[in-house]
Nucleic acid binder design. Structure first.
Lengths: 250, 250
DNA sequence: AAAGATATTTGGTAGGACCAATTGGTATCA
DNA sequence: TGATACCAATTGGTCCTACCAAATATCTTT
Protein backbone atom coordinates (compact mmCIF):
# COMPACT_ATOMS: atom_id res chain seq x y z
CA UNK A 1 0.00 0.00 0.00
CA UNK A 2 1.07 3.56 -0.10
CA UNK A 3 3.57 4.72 2.50
CA UNK A 4 1.17 7.41 3.69
CA UNK A 5 -1.46 4.91 4.74
CA UNK A 6 1.17 3.19 6.82
CA UNK A 7 2.13 6.51 8.33
CA UNK A 8 -1.45 7.17 9.35
CA UNK A 9 -1.94 3.70 10.74
CA UNK A 10 1.28 4.05 12.65
CA UNK A 11 0.05 7.38 13.99
CA UNK A 12 -3.15 5.74 15.16
CA UNK A 13 -1.18 3.02 16.87
CA UNK A 14 1.32 5.45 18.37
CA UNK A 15 -1.34 7.64 19.89
CA UNK A 16 -3.28 4.63 21.08
CA UNK A 17 -6.40 5.77 19.31
CA UNK A 18 -9.05 3.22 20.22
CA UNK A 19 -11.92 2.44 17.85
CA UNK A 20 -14.30 5.37 17.99
CA UNK A 21 -11.62 7.91 18.75
CA UNK A 22 -11.43 11.00 16.61
CA UNK A 23 -8.50 11.75 14.40
CA UNK A 24 -7.08 15.25 14.06
CA UNK A 25 -8.83 17.45 11.48
CA UNK A 26 -7.64 16.86 7.94
CA UNK A 27 -5.98 20.25 7.67
CA UNK A 28 -4.07 19.70 10.90
CA UNK A 29 -3.20 16.13 10.12
CA UNK A 30 -1.97 17.07 6.68
CA UNK A 31 0.29 19.67 8.21
CA UNK A 32 1.59 17.22 10.79
CA UNK A 33 2.41 14.69 8.10
CA UNK A 34 3.90 17.35 5.89
CA UNK A 35 1.61 16.74 2.92
CA UNK A 36 -1.17 18.62 1.24
CA UNK A 37 -4.75 18.04 2.19
CA UNK A 38 -5.41 16.73 -1.31
CA UNK A 39 -2.94 13.93 -0.88
CA UNK A 40 -4.03 13.23 2.66
CA UNK A 41 -7.63 12.97 1.52
CA UNK A 42 -6.80 10.59 -1.32
CA UNK A 43 -5.03 8.39 1.18
CA UNK A 44 -7.86 8.73 3.64
CA UNK A 45 -10.30 7.52 1.02
CA UNK A 46 -8.35 4.28 0.82
CA UNK A 47 -8.52 3.77 4.57
CA UNK A 48 -12.20 4.66 4.53
CA UNK A 49 -12.99 2.28 1.69
CA UNK A 50 -11.13 -0.42 3.58
CA UNK A 51 -13.28 0.22 6.61
CA UNK A 52 -10.52 1.32 8.95
CA UNK A 53 -11.86 4.83 9.26
CA UNK A 54 -15.31 6.32 9.18
CA UNK A 55 -15.90 9.91 8.21
CA UNK A 56 -18.65 12.24 9.35
CA UNK A 57 -19.17 15.41 7.38
CA UNK A 58 -18.72 18.32 9.69
CA UNK A 59 -17.92 16.00 12.56
CA UNK A 60 -14.55 14.50 11.91
CA UNK A 61 -12.75 11.31 10.98
CA UNK A 62 -12.91 8.44 13.43
CA UNK A 63 -11.20 5.13 13.91
CA UNK A 64 -13.76 2.59 12.80
CA UNK A 65 -15.19 0.16 15.33
CA UNK A 66 -13.67 -3.26 14.84
CA UNK A 67 -10.87 -1.75 12.80
CA UNK A 68 -8.45 -4.26 14.27
CA UNK A 69 -10.36 -7.21 12.90
CA UNK A 70 -10.66 -5.47 9.54
CA UNK A 71 -6.92 -5.03 9.51
CA UNK A 72 -6.52 -8.76 9.91
CA UNK A 73 -8.97 -9.49 7.15
CA UNK A 74 -7.11 -7.06 5.02
CA UNK A 75 -3.80 -8.77 5.64
CA UNK A 76 -5.29 -12.13 4.75
CA UNK A 77 -6.92 -10.76 1.63
CA UNK A 78 -4.28 -12.22 -0.72
CA UNK A 79 -5.62 -15.64 0.17
CA UNK A 80 -8.80 -15.03 -1.74
CA UNK A 81 -7.31 -15.07 -5.24
CA UNK A 82 -5.70 -18.39 -4.44
CA UNK A 83 -9.08 -19.82 -3.65
CA UNK A 84 -10.36 -18.93 -7.09
CA UNK A 85 -7.33 -20.13 -8.97
CA UNK A 86 -7.30 -23.88 -9.47
CA UNK A 87 -8.47 -25.97 -6.56
CA UNK A 88 -5.17 -27.77 -6.20
CA UNK A 89 -3.95 -26.06 -3.08
CA UNK A 90 -5.51 -28.31 -0.49
CA UNK A 91 -2.22 -30.05 0.14
CA UNK A 92 -0.55 -26.75 0.87
CA UNK A 93 -3.41 -25.84 3.15
CA UNK A 94 -3.31 -29.14 5.01
CA UNK A 95 0.39 -28.74 5.57
CA UNK A 96 -0.27 -25.49 7.37
CA UNK A 97 -3.31 -26.70 9.23
CA UNK A 98 -1.22 -29.43 10.82
CA UNK A 99 0.88 -26.80 12.51
CA UNK A 100 -1.67 -24.14 13.22
CA UNK A 101 -4.45 -26.29 14.56
CA UNK A 102 -2.03 -28.25 16.68
CA UNK A 103 -0.98 -24.91 18.14
CA UNK A 104 -4.58 -23.86 18.53
CA UNK A 105 -5.43 -27.06 20.38
CA UNK A 106 -2.39 -26.64 22.61
CA UNK A 107 -3.23 -23.08 23.58
CA UNK A 108 -6.93 -23.86 23.82
CA UNK A 109 -6.14 -26.45 26.44
CA UNK A 110 -4.30 -23.81 28.43
CA UNK A 111 -6.59 -20.84 27.95
CA UNK A 112 -10.12 -22.03 27.38
CA UNK A 113 -12.67 -20.50 29.71
CA UNK A 114 -16.06 -21.86 30.63
CA UNK A 115 -17.80 -20.40 27.62
CA UNK A 116 -15.17 -21.88 25.31
CA UNK A 117 -15.57 -25.32 26.86
CA UNK A 118 -19.30 -25.09 26.55
CA UNK A 119 -19.14 -24.21 22.88
CA UNK A 120 -16.54 -26.86 22.22
CA UNK A 121 -18.72 -29.55 23.75
CA UNK A 122 -21.68 -28.43 21.69
CA UNK A 123 -19.60 -28.47 18.53
CA UNK A 124 -18.27 -31.90 19.38
CA UNK A 125 -21.75 -33.22 19.89
CA UNK A 126 -22.84 -31.78 16.56
CA UNK A 127 -19.96 -33.21 14.61
CA UNK A 128 -20.29 -36.63 16.21
CA UNK A 129 -24.02 -36.70 15.66
CA UNK A 130 -23.27 -37.29 12.02
CA UNK A 131 -25.51 -35.34 9.70
CA UNK A 132 -26.96 -37.03 6.71
CA UNK A 133 -25.88 -34.58 4.06
CA UNK A 134 -22.18 -33.75 3.55
CA UNK A 135 -22.90 -30.02 3.52
CA UNK A 136 -24.19 -29.95 7.07
CA UNK A 137 -21.51 -32.35 8.21
CA UNK A 138 -18.75 -30.18 6.77
CA UNK A 139 -20.23 -27.16 8.53
CA UNK A 140 -20.21 -29.03 11.80
CA UNK A 141 -16.64 -30.07 11.21
CA UNK A 142 -15.61 -26.50 10.50
CA UNK A 143 -17.50 -25.28 13.54
CA UNK A 144 -15.66 -27.78 15.71
CA UNK A 145 -12.25 -26.69 14.53
CA UNK A 146 -13.21 -23.04 14.76
CA UNK A 147 -14.36 -23.56 18.33
CA UNK A 148 -10.86 -24.72 19.12
CA UNK A 149 -9.37 -21.76 17.34
CA UNK A 150 -11.62 -19.45 19.34
CA UNK A 151 -10.62 -21.11 22.57
CA UNK A 152 -6.97 -20.50 21.81
CA UNK A 153 -7.65 -16.81 22.51
CA UNK A 154 -5.34 -15.78 19.71
CA UNK A 155 -7.18 -13.45 17.37
CA UNK A 156 -4.66 -13.75 14.59
CA UNK A 157 -4.64 -17.50 14.79
CA UNK A 158 -8.41 -17.58 14.69
CA UNK A 159 -8.45 -15.32 11.66
CA UNK A 160 -5.88 -17.34 9.76
CA UNK A 161 -7.56 -20.66 10.44
CA UNK A 162 -10.85 -19.14 9.42
CA UNK A 163 -9.25 -18.02 6.19
CA UNK A 164 -7.87 -21.48 5.55
CA UNK A 165 -11.28 -23.02 6.03
CA UNK A 166 -12.66 -20.49 3.64
CA UNK A 167 -10.02 -21.58 1.22
CA UNK A 168 -11.06 -25.20 1.49
CA UNK A 169 -14.77 -24.88 1.93
CA UNK A 170 -15.46 -25.93 -1.63
CA UNK A 171 -13.40 -29.10 -1.57
CA UNK A 172 -14.17 -30.10 2.00
CA UNK A 173 -17.77 -31.03 1.35
CA UNK A 174 -17.08 -33.26 -1.60
CA UNK A 175 -14.02 -34.81 -0.01
CA UNK A 176 -15.99 -35.53 3.11
CA UNK A 177 -18.64 -37.37 1.16
CA UNK A 178 -15.97 -39.56 -0.41
CA UNK A 179 -14.23 -39.94 2.91
CA UNK A 180 -17.33 -41.50 4.34
CA UNK A 181 -17.25 -44.18 1.73
CA UNK A 182 -14.11 -45.67 3.17
CA UNK A 183 -14.78 -48.16 5.95
CA UNK A 184 -14.40 -47.14 9.57
CA UNK A 185 -13.45 -43.58 8.75
CA UNK A 186 -16.48 -42.11 10.42
CA UNK A 187 -15.74 -43.95 13.62
CA UNK A 188 -12.07 -43.01 13.46
CA UNK A 189 -12.86 -39.36 12.87
CA UNK A 190 -15.31 -39.25 15.75
CA UNK A 191 -12.81 -40.90 18.00
CA UNK A 192 -10.15 -38.40 17.00
CA UNK A 193 -12.48 -35.47 17.55
CA UNK A 194 -13.33 -36.76 20.98
CA UNK A 195 -9.67 -37.21 21.79
CA UNK A 196 -8.92 -33.61 20.84
CA UNK A 197 -11.85 -32.18 22.73
CA UNK A 198 -11.16 -34.39 25.72
CA UNK A 199 -7.59 -33.26 26.00
CA UNK A 200 -8.54 -29.60 25.69
CA UNK A 201 -11.34 -29.86 28.25
CA UNK A 202 -8.99 -31.66 30.61
CA UNK A 203 -6.34 -29.00 30.13
CA UNK A 204 -3.77 -31.48 28.86
CA UNK A 205 -2.07 -29.20 26.35
CA UNK A 206 0.51 -31.60 24.98
CA UNK A 207 -2.05 -34.33 24.51
CA UNK A 208 -4.30 -31.88 22.71
CA UNK A 209 -1.51 -30.92 20.34
CA UNK A 210 -0.71 -34.53 19.63
CA UNK A 211 -4.34 -35.46 19.10
CA UNK A 212 -4.84 -32.58 16.69
CA UNK A 213 -1.71 -33.51 14.79
CA UNK A 214 -2.81 -37.13 14.52
CA UNK A 215 -6.23 -36.13 13.36
CA UNK A 216 -5.00 -33.83 10.62
CA UNK A 217 -2.38 -36.29 9.47
CA UNK A 218 -5.10 -38.88 9.18
CA UNK A 219 -7.33 -36.53 7.21
CA UNK A 220 -4.48 -35.49 4.96
CA UNK A 221 -3.56 -39.08 4.32
CA UNK A 222 -7.15 -40.01 3.57
CA UNK A 223 -7.53 -37.12 1.18
CA UNK A 224 -4.34 -38.09 -0.56
CA UNK A 225 -5.61 -41.63 -0.93
CA UNK A 226 -8.86 -40.35 -2.38
CA UNK A 227 -7.09 -38.20 -4.90
CA UNK A 228 -4.83 -40.97 -6.13
CA UNK A 229 -7.93 -43.06 -6.61
CA UNK A 230 -9.76 -40.47 -8.57
CA UNK A 231 -6.51 -40.01 -10.48
CA UNK A 232 -7.19 -36.49 -11.49
CA UNK A 233 -4.87 -34.33 -13.48
CA UNK A 234 -2.56 -32.23 -11.43
CA UNK A 235 -2.46 -28.46 -11.36
CA UNK A 236 -1.94 -26.49 -14.53
CA UNK A 237 1.18 -24.62 -15.48
CA UNK A 238 1.97 -21.14 -14.41
CA UNK A 239 0.71 -18.23 -16.40
CA UNK A 240 3.01 -15.33 -16.80
CA UNK A 241 1.57 -11.89 -17.02
CA UNK A 242 3.13 -8.54 -17.68
CA UNK A 243 1.70 -5.15 -17.06
CA UNK A 244 0.12 -3.25 -19.93
CA UNK A 245 2.54 -1.28 -22.03
CA UNK A 246 0.47 1.59 -23.30
CA UNK A 247 -1.57 0.10 -26.10
CA UNK A 248 -5.30 0.21 -25.87
CA UNK A 249 -7.50 -2.36 -27.56
CA UNK A 250 -10.73 -1.25 -29.14
CA UNK B 1 -19.32 2.03 -1.84
CA UNK B 2 -19.51 5.50 -3.18
CA UNK B 3 -21.76 6.08 -6.17
CA UNK B 4 -18.85 7.33 -8.24
CA UNK B 5 -16.99 4.05 -8.02
CA UNK B 6 -20.03 2.27 -9.37
CA UNK B 7 -20.26 4.84 -12.13
CA UNK B 8 -16.68 4.14 -13.15
CA UNK B 9 -17.15 0.40 -12.97
CA UNK B 10 -20.27 0.74 -15.07
CA UNK B 11 -18.28 2.78 -17.56
CA UNK B 12 -15.66 0.07 -17.73
CA UNK B 13 -18.31 -2.54 -18.29
CA UNK B 14 -20.16 -0.43 -20.83
CA UNK B 15 -17.07 0.16 -22.92
CA UNK B 16 -16.05 -3.47 -22.63
CA UNK B 17 -12.69 -2.57 -21.23
CA UNK B 18 -10.84 -5.85 -20.81
CA UNK B 19 -8.13 -6.28 -18.15
CA UNK B 20 -5.09 -4.37 -19.31
CA UNK B 21 -7.08 -1.80 -21.24
CA UNK B 22 -6.35 1.84 -20.61
CA UNK B 23 -8.92 4.20 -19.16
CA UNK B 24 -9.36 7.74 -20.44
CA UNK B 25 -6.99 10.30 -18.90
CA UNK B 26 -8.12 11.61 -15.55
CA UNK B 27 -8.84 15.09 -16.84
CA UNK B 28 -10.96 13.72 -19.66
CA UNK B 29 -12.71 11.15 -17.52
CA UNK B 30 -13.47 13.75 -14.87
CA UNK B 31 -15.07 15.95 -17.48
CA UNK B 32 -17.09 13.04 -18.88
CA UNK B 33 -18.40 12.16 -15.45
CA UNK B 34 -19.05 15.79 -14.65
CA UNK B 35 -16.85 15.94 -11.56
CA UNK B 36 -13.59 17.56 -10.64
CA UNK B 37 -10.32 15.74 -11.07
CA UNK B 38 -9.81 15.88 -7.31
CA UNK B 39 -12.97 13.96 -6.64
CA UNK B 40 -12.30 11.56 -9.48
CA UNK B 41 -8.83 10.88 -8.10
CA UNK B 42 -10.09 10.27 -4.57
CA UNK B 43 -12.49 7.72 -6.02
CA UNK B 44 -9.78 6.27 -8.21
CA UNK B 45 -7.59 5.71 -5.17
CA UNK B 46 -10.29 3.47 -3.75
CA UNK B 47 -10.44 1.39 -6.91
CA UNK B 48 -6.65 1.24 -7.02
CA UNK B 49 -6.36 0.16 -3.42
CA UNK B 50 -8.95 -2.51 -4.09
CA UNK B 51 -6.86 -3.80 -6.95
CA UNK B 52 -9.37 -3.11 -9.68
CA UNK B 53 -7.20 -0.51 -11.36
CA UNK B 54 -3.47 -0.06 -11.72
CA UNK B 55 -1.96 3.34 -12.31
CA UNK B 56 1.20 4.18 -14.16
CA UNK B 57 2.63 7.63 -13.65
CA UNK B 58 2.84 9.33 -17.01
CA UNK B 59 1.31 6.32 -18.67
CA UNK B 60 -2.29 6.12 -17.67
CA UNK B 61 -4.77 4.17 -15.60
CA UNK B 62 -5.48 0.59 -16.60
CA UNK B 63 -7.99 -2.05 -15.76
CA UNK B 64 -6.21 -4.47 -13.46
CA UNK B 65 -5.40 -7.96 -14.68
CA UNK B 66 -7.56 -10.81 -13.49
CA UNK B 67 -7.57 -12.02 -9.91
CA UNK B 68 -5.67 -15.25 -10.46
CA UNK B 69 -2.97 -13.57 -12.46
CA UNK B 70 -2.85 -10.80 -9.92
CA UNK B 71 -2.21 -13.35 -7.20
CA UNK B 72 0.83 -14.79 -8.90
CA UNK B 73 2.08 -11.37 -9.82
CA UNK B 74 1.75 -10.31 -6.25
CA UNK B 75 3.43 -13.49 -5.17
CA UNK B 76 6.57 -12.77 -7.14
CA UNK B 77 6.86 -9.20 -5.99
CA UNK B 78 9.70 -8.32 -3.68
CA UNK B 79 9.03 -6.93 -0.27
CA UNK B 80 6.81 -3.94 0.17
CA UNK B 81 6.92 -0.96 2.51
CA UNK B 82 6.69 -1.25 6.24
CA UNK B 83 4.04 -0.22 8.70
CA UNK B 84 1.70 -1.57 11.27
CA UNK B 85 -1.97 -2.11 11.63
CA UNK B 86 -3.08 -1.65 15.17
CA UNK B 87 -0.74 -2.42 17.98
CA UNK B 88 -1.25 -5.19 20.46
CA UNK B 89 -1.26 -8.21 18.18
CA UNK B 90 2.42 -8.82 17.88
CA UNK B 91 2.30 -11.46 20.58
CA UNK B 92 -0.43 -13.34 18.75
CA UNK B 93 1.51 -13.00 15.54
CA UNK B 94 4.73 -14.25 17.08
CA UNK B 95 2.95 -17.25 18.49
CA UNK B 96 1.90 -18.24 14.99
CA UNK B 97 5.19 -17.40 13.37
CA UNK B 98 6.92 -19.84 15.67
CA UNK B 99 4.93 -22.65 14.12
CA UNK B 100 4.66 -21.49 10.56
CA UNK B 101 8.23 -20.40 10.00
CA UNK B 102 9.52 -23.52 11.66
CA UNK B 103 7.44 -25.45 9.17
CA UNK B 104 8.65 -23.26 6.35
CA UNK B 105 12.27 -23.86 7.31
CA UNK B 106 11.65 -27.58 7.56
CA UNK B 107 10.10 -27.85 4.13
CA UNK B 108 12.56 -25.41 2.64
CA UNK B 109 15.36 -27.72 3.67
CA UNK B 110 13.65 -30.54 1.82
CA UNK B 111 12.44 -28.71 -1.26
CA UNK B 112 14.70 -25.76 -1.98
CA UNK B 113 16.06 -25.72 -5.50
CA UNK B 114 19.17 -23.94 -6.75
CA UNK B 115 17.40 -20.64 -7.24
CA UNK B 116 15.95 -20.79 -3.75
CA UNK B 117 19.36 -21.49 -2.25
CA UNK B 118 20.86 -18.66 -4.22
CA UNK B 119 18.23 -16.20 -3.03
CA UNK B 120 18.49 -17.44 0.52
CA UNK B 121 22.23 -16.90 0.54
CA UNK B 122 21.80 -13.41 -0.84
CA UNK B 123 19.18 -12.61 1.78
CA UNK B 124 21.42 -13.99 4.51
CA UNK B 125 24.31 -11.86 3.34
CA UNK B 126 22.10 -8.78 3.30
CA UNK B 127 20.69 -9.33 6.75
CA UNK B 128 24.09 -10.09 8.23
CA UNK B 129 25.65 -7.08 6.56
CA UNK B 130 23.84 -4.97 9.12
CA UNK B 131 22.35 -1.86 7.60
CA UNK B 132 22.77 1.39 9.45
CA UNK B 133 19.14 2.42 9.52
CA UNK B 134 16.49 0.18 11.09
CA UNK B 135 14.22 0.56 8.09
CA UNK B 136 16.63 -1.11 5.71
CA UNK B 137 17.58 -3.68 8.29
CA UNK B 138 13.98 -4.65 8.88
CA UNK B 139 13.47 -5.05 5.15
CA UNK B 140 16.47 -7.32 4.98
CA UNK B 141 15.15 -9.34 7.89
CA UNK B 142 11.76 -9.69 6.25
CA UNK B 143 13.39 -10.63 2.97
CA UNK B 144 15.36 -13.36 4.67
CA UNK B 145 12.32 -14.92 6.25
CA UNK B 146 10.34 -14.56 3.05
CA UNK B 147 13.11 -16.29 1.14
CA UNK B 148 12.65 -19.26 3.42
CA UNK B 149 8.91 -19.14 2.93
CA UNK B 150 9.44 -19.09 -0.84
CA UNK B 151 11.79 -22.03 -0.65
CA UNK B 152 9.18 -24.07 1.19
CA UNK B 153 7.31 -24.26 -2.12
CA UNK B 154 4.02 -23.90 -0.34
CA UNK B 155 2.12 -21.01 -1.89
CA UNK B 156 -0.41 -20.76 0.89
CA UNK B 157 2.27 -20.78 3.54
CA UNK B 158 4.09 -18.05 1.68
CA UNK B 159 0.94 -15.93 1.51
CA UNK B 160 0.14 -16.35 5.17
CA UNK B 161 3.63 -15.51 6.33
CA UNK B 162 3.64 -12.52 4.03
CA UNK B 163 0.37 -11.40 5.60
CA UNK B 164 1.80 -11.77 9.07
CA UNK B 165 4.77 -9.63 8.15
CA UNK B 166 2.35 -7.07 6.84
CA UNK B 167 0.73 -7.03 10.24
CA UNK B 168 3.98 -6.35 12.01
CA UNK B 169 5.48 -3.93 9.56
CA UNK B 170 6.22 -0.84 11.58
CA UNK B 171 6.62 -2.47 14.93
CA UNK B 172 9.40 -4.59 13.51
CA UNK B 173 11.39 -1.59 12.43
CA UNK B 174 11.14 0.28 15.70
CA UNK B 175 11.58 -2.84 17.77
CA UNK B 176 14.62 -3.73 15.78
CA UNK B 177 16.20 -0.40 16.54
CA UNK B 178 15.64 -0.96 20.24
CA UNK B 179 16.72 -4.56 19.92
CA UNK B 180 20.09 -3.39 18.71
CA UNK B 181 20.60 -1.43 21.87
CA UNK B 182 20.79 -4.58 23.93
CA UNK B 183 24.28 -6.03 24.05
CA UNK B 184 25.19 -9.01 21.89
CA UNK B 185 21.78 -9.20 20.25
CA UNK B 186 23.10 -8.39 16.82
CA UNK B 187 25.68 -11.13 17.03
CA UNK B 188 23.12 -13.58 18.38
CA UNK B 189 20.65 -12.76 15.65
CA UNK B 190 23.24 -13.13 12.95
CA UNK B 191 24.35 -16.43 14.40
CA UNK B 192 20.76 -17.65 14.48
CA UNK B 193 20.15 -16.55 10.91
CA UNK B 194 23.24 -18.37 9.79
CA UNK B 195 22.18 -21.47 11.65
CA UNK B 196 18.80 -21.49 9.93
CA UNK B 197 20.21 -20.85 6.48
CA UNK B 198 22.98 -23.36 7.02
CA UNK B 199 20.59 -26.13 7.97
CA UNK B 200 18.33 -25.39 5.02
CA UNK B 201 21.20 -25.25 2.55
CA UNK B 202 22.55 -28.51 3.94
CA UNK B 203 19.16 -30.13 3.66
CA UNK B 204 18.96 -30.90 7.38
CA UNK B 205 15.23 -30.39 7.80
CA UNK B 206 14.93 -31.12 11.51
CA UNK B 207 17.86 -28.86 12.32
CA UNK B 208 16.30 -26.12 10.25
CA UNK B 209 13.02 -26.39 12.13
CA UNK B 210 14.80 -26.30 15.45
CA UNK B 211 16.97 -23.35 14.45
CA UNK B 212 13.94 -21.40 13.27
CA UNK B 213 12.09 -22.18 16.46
CA UNK B 214 15.01 -21.08 18.58
CA UNK B 215 15.38 -17.88 16.61
CA UNK B 216 11.74 -16.88 16.91
CA UNK B 217 11.60 -17.76 20.58
CA UNK B 218 14.60 -15.51 21.11
CA UNK B 219 13.00 -12.67 19.17
CA UNK B 220 9.72 -13.08 21.00
CA UNK B 221 11.45 -13.06 24.33
CA UNK B 222 13.47 -9.99 23.40
CA UNK B 223 10.39 -8.14 22.24
CA UNK B 224 8.62 -9.00 25.44
CA UNK B 225 11.54 -7.67 27.43
CA UNK B 226 11.54 -4.48 25.39
CA UNK B 227 7.87 -3.91 25.95
CA UNK B 228 8.11 -4.24 29.69
CA UNK B 229 10.87 -1.64 29.64
CA UNK B 230 8.98 0.64 27.29
CA UNK B 231 5.84 0.38 29.37
CA UNK B 232 7.72 1.97 32.18
CA UNK B 233 8.83 4.84 30.00
CA UNK B 234 5.26 5.48 28.91
CA UNK B 235 2.83 7.62 30.87
CA UNK B 236 4.11 10.77 29.19
CA UNK B 237 0.89 11.21 27.26
CA UNK B 238 1.66 13.60 24.47
CA UNK B 239 -1.98 13.72 23.48
CA UNK B 240 -2.64 17.27 22.52
CA UNK B 241 -5.83 16.14 20.85
CA UNK B 242 -9.04 16.88 22.59
CA UNK B 243 -11.28 13.88 22.27
CA UNK B 244 -14.90 15.03 22.23
CA UNK B 245 -16.17 11.46 21.89
CA UNK B 246 -13.46 8.89 22.11
CA UNK B 247 -12.12 7.69 25.37
CA UNK B 248 -8.52 8.06 26.28
CA UNK B 249 -6.73 5.07 27.69
CA UNK B 250 -4.22 5.66 30.44
C1' DA C 1 16.58 2.90 -40.56
C1' DA C 2 18.31 3.48 -35.99
C1' DA C 3 19.54 6.40 -32.24
C1' DG C 4 19.09 10.35 -29.69
C1' DA C 5 16.99 14.81 -28.43
C1' DT C 6 12.67 17.29 -27.77
C1' DA C 7 7.79 18.18 -27.04
C1' DT C 8 3.46 16.42 -25.45
C1' DT C 9 0.66 13.65 -22.69
C1' DT C 10 -0.53 12.01 -18.23
C1' DG C 11 -0.55 10.78 -13.41
C1' DG C 12 1.11 12.94 -8.69
C1' DT C 13 1.18 16.74 -5.54
C1' DA C 14 0.38 21.34 -3.65
C1' DG C 15 -2.49 25.00 -2.11
C1' DG C 16 -6.44 27.93 -2.14
C1' DA C 17 -11.40 28.83 -2.23
C1' DC C 18 -16.01 27.78 -1.27
C1' DC C 19 -20.02 24.76 0.17
C1' DA C 20 -22.58 21.90 3.56
C1' DA C 21 -23.14 19.43 7.73
C1' DT C 22 -22.05 19.28 12.51
C1' DT C 23 -20.97 21.17 16.83
C1' DG C 24 -20.79 24.22 20.69
C1' DG C 25 -21.83 28.39 22.67
C1' DT C 26 -25.04 32.30 23.41
C1' DA C 27 -29.09 34.60 23.73
C1' DT C 28 -33.95 34.39 24.14
C1' DC C 29 -38.22 32.93 25.96
C1' DA C 30 -41.56 30.22 28.79
C1' DT D 1 -34.27 27.42 35.96
C1' DG D 2 -34.73 25.00 31.88
C1' DA D 3 -35.64 24.53 27.25
C1' DT D 4 -35.48 26.42 22.72
C1' DA D 5 -33.79 29.21 18.90
C1' DC D 6 -30.15 31.17 16.89
C1' DC D 7 -25.43 32.06 15.46
C1' DA D 8 -20.54 31.34 14.67
C1' DA D 9 -16.58 28.30 14.50
C1' DT D 10 -15.14 23.82 13.11
C1' DT D 11 -14.69 20.29 9.75
C1' DG D 12 -15.40 17.16 5.90
C1' DG D 13 -16.73 17.50 0.68
C1' DT D 14 -15.94 19.53 -3.74
C1' DC D 15 -13.94 22.40 -7.21
C1' DC D 16 -10.20 24.89 -9.19
C1' DT D 17 -5.47 26.18 -10.82
C1' DA D 18 -0.86 25.48 -11.11
C1' DC D 19 3.27 22.87 -11.25
C1' DC D 20 6.27 18.62 -11.12
C1' DA D 21 7.88 14.03 -12.77
C1' DA D 22 7.50 10.04 -15.45
C1' DA D 23 6.14 7.91 -19.67
C1' DT D 24 5.08 8.45 -24.33
C1' DA D 25 5.00 10.36 -28.86
C1' DT D 26 7.33 13.17 -32.31
C1' DC D 27 11.03 15.03 -34.63
C1' DT D 28 15.86 15.47 -35.73
C1' DT D 29 20.30 13.70 -36.72
C1' DT D 30 23.50 10.43 -38.28
Amino acid sequence: MSPLTDQIRALIAARQLAPGARLPPERTLAAELGVSRSRLRETMQQLISHGLIVSRRGGGNFVAPGSAERALEQAMQPLQPLAQAEGGYWQDVMEIRKSLEADAAYHAALRADDLDRQRLQAALAAVCAGASDPETQSRADAAFHMAIAEASHNLVLRQVISGLFDLMRVSIAESLSKLHLLPDTVEKLNHQHQAIAGAILAGRADDARQAATDHLCFVEDSLRRIETETARARRAGALRNKLPQGKQPA
